[in-house]
Amino acid sequence: MTTINTSIPTEAEVVARAHAMIPWLREKADAVEKARMVPVETIQAFKDAGFFKILQPKRWGGYEMNPNVLNKVLMELARGCPSSAWNVMVLGVHPFEIGLLPQRCGDELWGEDNTALVSSSYAPFGTVKCVEGGYVLNGEWLTSSGCDHAAGGAFLGGRVADKNGEMAFRSFWINAQDFEIVDDWFVVGLAGTGSKKLLVKEVFIPEYRSHVIGAYDEASHGHVDNLYKMPFFYVFYAAVSSVIIGMARGMVDLYIEHMVPRQNLNQAVGAAVQDPFIKGRLGEAYSKILGSTARVLMNTDEAWSFASQGQLVPLDIRVRHFATNQFTGGECFDAAHMVFKKTSTRGVWLNSPMQRQMRDILVGANHITQNQDNIGDLLGGCLLGNPLPAANPFGAKP
Rank of each mutant, 00 (worst) to 15 (best):
Gln103Asp: 10
Pro57Asp: 01
Gly61Val: 11
Glu41Phe: 14
Tyr122Met: 15
Pro95Ala: 00
Leu101Asn: 04
Ala85Ser: 13
Pro95Ser: 01
Leu109Asn: 00
Leu117Trp: 13
Gly153Met: 08
Arg104Ile: 15
Pro67His: 06
Ser120Tyr: 13
Ala154Trp: 08
Thr143Ile: 12
Cys105Val: 15
His149Ser: 08
Gly134Pro: 07
Lys34Gln: 14
Pro67Cys: 06
Gly152Leu: 07
Asp113Arg: 05
Thr143Trp: 15
Lys53Ser: 13
Ser121Val: 05
Glu112Lys: 13
Leu117Ile: 10
Leu91Arg: 05
Ser84Lys: 00
Cys105Ile: 15
Met89Ala: 12
Ala49Arg: 09
Asn114Lys: 11
Gln56Ser: 08
Trp110Ala: 01
Phe96Gln: 02
Ala49His: 11
Gly133Ile: 05
Glu112Pro: 00
Ala45Tyr: 06
Thr127Cys: 05
Cys105Ser: 07
Val40Leu: 07
Ala150Phe: 15
Ala123Met: 11
Val88Ser: 06
Leu77Thr: 09
Lys47Ser: 11
Ala78His: 04
Leu101Met: 15
Pro39Tyr: 05
Glu97Ala: 09
Ala116Asp: 09
Met37Trp: 14
Ala85Lys: 09
Leu142Asn: 01
Gly134Thr: 13
Thr127Tyr: 03
Ser84Ala: 15
Asn71Pro: 00
Trp141Arg: 00
Lys72Cys: 04
Gly126His: 05
Asp107Ser: 09
Leu109Phe: 07
Leu74His: 06
Val73Ser: 00
Pro57Arg: 03
Glu112Arg: 08
Cys147Pro: 00
Lys72Trp: 11
Phe46Gln: 00
Met75Thr: 00
Pro124Arg: 04
Ser144Trp: 12
Gly133His: 09
Thr143Arg: 07
Leu100Arg: 15
Cys105Arg: 07
Ile43Val: 13
Gly62Lys: 04
Gly146Thr: 08
Leu77Gly: 09
Val69Asn: 04
Ala116Gln: 10
Gly153Trp: 03
Asp107Leu: 09
Ser121Lys: 02
Glu97His: 08
Gly133Pro: 03
Glu97Asn: 07
Thr127Gly: 01
Cys147Lys: 02
Glu76Ile: 05
Phe52Ser: 01
Gly111Gln: 03
Ala123Leu: 10
Lys53Ala: 13
Cys105Lys: 08
Lys34Ala: 13
Val90Gly: 06
Gly153Pro: 11
Gln103Gly: 00
Gly106Leu: 10
Glu132Ser: 08
Gly50Asn: 01
Leu109Val: 14
Gly126Leu: 01
Lys129Gly: 05
Met89Ile: 10
Asn87Cys: 14
Gly139Ile: 06
Gly80Arg: 10
Phe51Cys: 02
Leu117Glu: 02
Ser145Leu: 08
His94Gly: 02
Pro124Met: 03
Leu70Ala: 12
Gly111Val: 03
Lys72Ser: 11
Thr143Val: 12
Ala85His: 10
Leu137Gln: 06
Gln44Cys: 03
Ser83Ile: 10
Lys53Tyr: 14
Trp110Glu: 02
Pro39Arg: 05
Cys81Ile: 15
Trp110Ile: 03
